[in-house]
Design a protein around this nucleic acid. Structure first.
Length: 504
RNA sequence: GACCCGGUAGCUCAGUCGGUAGAGCAUGCGGCUUUUAACCGCCAGGUCGUGGGUUCGAUCCCCACCCGGGUCACCA
């Protein structure tokens, strides 16, 4: 990994010097690209010879045979074979081949033709070096076995693939396709909400107070104001302020930051979408989430299919693509899973014993709702495979949700689970500023007692609420996890282009 | 944060029961005008993650640290 020039790197520097000696610029200013690689087959059609094309991209394969050379050029659309022949390029033109390497960016001009093996190929009449690659990309050798590409000695070190995502992307078209599918998913989610009249907004990432979730924040300092600022842990409180202001339907897609551990499902910064809709309750929002997830799944399916990456991931599951998703109530589903008539009738001792049995630590310190939540996670949540709404959470577990109409022990809250993981969390939002102040003060007491995740009283937010907050439904969805679910990806680092890592 | 596993050539890996290391591919040189993991021949390429310790001698054993992965804890 040394940056000192080894023999491999030195050989490429030597080629740069040789190119310059010949008057060839190793780094060009542009190229008049007229076609993409993937278009070439269509342009040739059934003919043996076709029109002249101008393609540009990276040299991804190279097979020299003396006075002739076969290469493959890869671009964002795919790859096309180049045929370089001394008779065609001339002495001087062909000499450039000696100074090219795998990984160089080139432009090629010439007519299409079909080789003896039937492959659509550019018979290159003019070859331009656009950028010399001074460092070998970790290309593996590829062969096609039964229609699938098999790589040999591929770039496989997960750490280096994350650190040098540019190299990972450069040598792995399927990784590019995966991240492109993620962008398509984001676009589909925007289109879905835009279609409902939602307004996309931007709220502060740097906040004097953090709130809207229970998490440890990143703290920084503004020099001119000489004050601490926190990176947001959620968008919630600012978006609700906007609904108070009269934007009835708003959403934001952006990064939240939580100063916690890193593992296969957690990155310190992650993409959250939150959307809030005035006059809607949680049943309306459930319909929104269902339709949004179907739109996201459809976009992912289409993007991966177009890239030839169809799999058996959930984005290809007809039950996910069609809906409707199953619904279950929190308490009854827990009672059923535990094979008891009514879990709320169990004694404290019985609950603790049940929790201890499934490996919960420190059961003596947990409240009844917390114990039940542990039991729920173990007996119900972790076993949910396909998207399922769980509704009506106990009040103590849902401090931001309105009480359920007809049963004040419950709240109007739902979560969407799939593959044992939370996908969405939503409420009929609390819009009573008097109640809200009490909840803030309870949080502040916890914070004073040393709870790092508790939040402070947000007087400005309370002032906003006091002007009158319309009833509204709100939803938060972790976009990274949604995409992981739809694509069957098991590590969050594989769906984030540049995951947080220690410097080398 | 705890425990376990790993770090050897540009890439993927092997290996040394302690005597300063090998393979395939890539690179370099030579040959080859329809190949596609192209092929054939030759050459070169590594302070074996870092720092200590034990030893005549450490890439190997011991300790610490760095980086990564896994499991667990944490993440309402």
């Amino acid at each position: 990994m040394s940056d000192e020039l080894n023999y491999v790197l030195q050989a490429r520097r030597d080629k740069v010097a040789a190119l310059e000696a010949k008057g060839i610029a190793p780094f060009a200013y542009g190229f008049d690209r007229q076609q993409f690689a993937a278009q070439c087959a269509g342009l040739l059609g059934d003919a043996e010879e076709g029109p002249t094309v101008q393609v540009a991209g990276r040299v991804v394969a190279w097979r020299a045979h003396g006075k002739t050379t076969f290469a493959h050029l890869g671009d964002s659309s795919g790859r096309v074979q180049l045929y370089l022949k001394k008779d065609v390029l001339g002495e001087g033109g062909y000499a450039l081949c000696d100074l090219l390497d795998l990984g160089d960016v080139v432009g090629a001009v010439g007519p299409l033709f079909r080789t003896r093996t039937g492959e659509v190929t550019v018979k290159v009449e003019r070859l331009e070096l656009l950028a010399k690659s001074l460092r070998p990309l970790p290309f593996g050798k590829e062969e096609v076995v039964d229609g699938t590409v098999v790589r040999h000695s591929a770039f496989a070190d997960g750490e280096q693939r994350s650190r040098q995502r540019y190299a990972d992307l450069a040598v792995h078209p399927e990784v590019r396709a995966l991240f492109a599918a993620r962008s398509k998913m984001t676009s589909a989610v925007r289109a879905f909400l835009d279609g409902l009249g939602y307004l996309e907004v931007e709220t502060p990432v740097l906040q004097p107070l953090y709130g809207g979730a229970a998490a440890k924040p990143f703290e920084t300092h503004h020099n001119a104001l000489d004050m601490p600022l926190f990176l947001r842990i959620a968008d919630e409180l600012y978006l609700k302020r906007l609904v108070i202001g009269g934007f009835d339907r708003v959403y934001e897609i952006g990064h939240d930051f939580r100063n916690e551990g890193i593992d296969r499902t957690h990155n310190p910064e992650f993409t959250m979408i939150e959307f809030y809709e005035a006059y809607a309750d949680y049943t309306v929002m459930m319909g929104r989430v269902e339709a949004l997830l179907i739109a996201a799944a459809t976009a992912v399916r289409d993007a991966l299919t177009a890239a030839g990456l169809a799999t058996d991931a959930p984005a290809f599951d007809p039950a996910v693509l069609a809906g409707p998703f199953a619904r279950m109530e929190w308490l009854p589903s827990l009672s059923q899973a535990m094979h008891v008539p009514d879990v709320t009738q169990l004694s404290d001792a019985e609950l603790r014993a049940a929790a201890e049995k499934i490996g919960v630590h420190g059961v003596g310190k947990l409240s009844r709702p917390k114990l039940m939540d542990e039991l729920f996670q173990h007996h119900v949540e972790s076993k949910i495979e396909r998207p399922t709404f769980v509704v009506d959470y106990p009040k103590e577990l849902s401090p931001l949700a309105k009480p359920k109409r007809g049963n004040p022990d419950l709240t109007e809250r739902f979560e969407l689970f799939a593959r044992g993981k939370e996908m969405a969390n939503a409420f009929s939002e609390l819009n009573d500023p008097i109640d809200q102040r009490q909840r803030f003060e309870a949080q502040a007491a916890l914070k004073a007692a040393g709870d790092e995740e508790a939040t402070a009283v947000d007087e400005d937010y309370l002032r906003a609420m006091e002007y009158g907050m319309p009833p509204m439904g709100g939803v938060g969805i972790g976009m990274d996890r949604l995409f992981m679910y739809l694509t069957g990806t098991t590590h969050i680092r594989d769906v984030i282009l540049f995951p947080t890592m220690r410097p080398e």
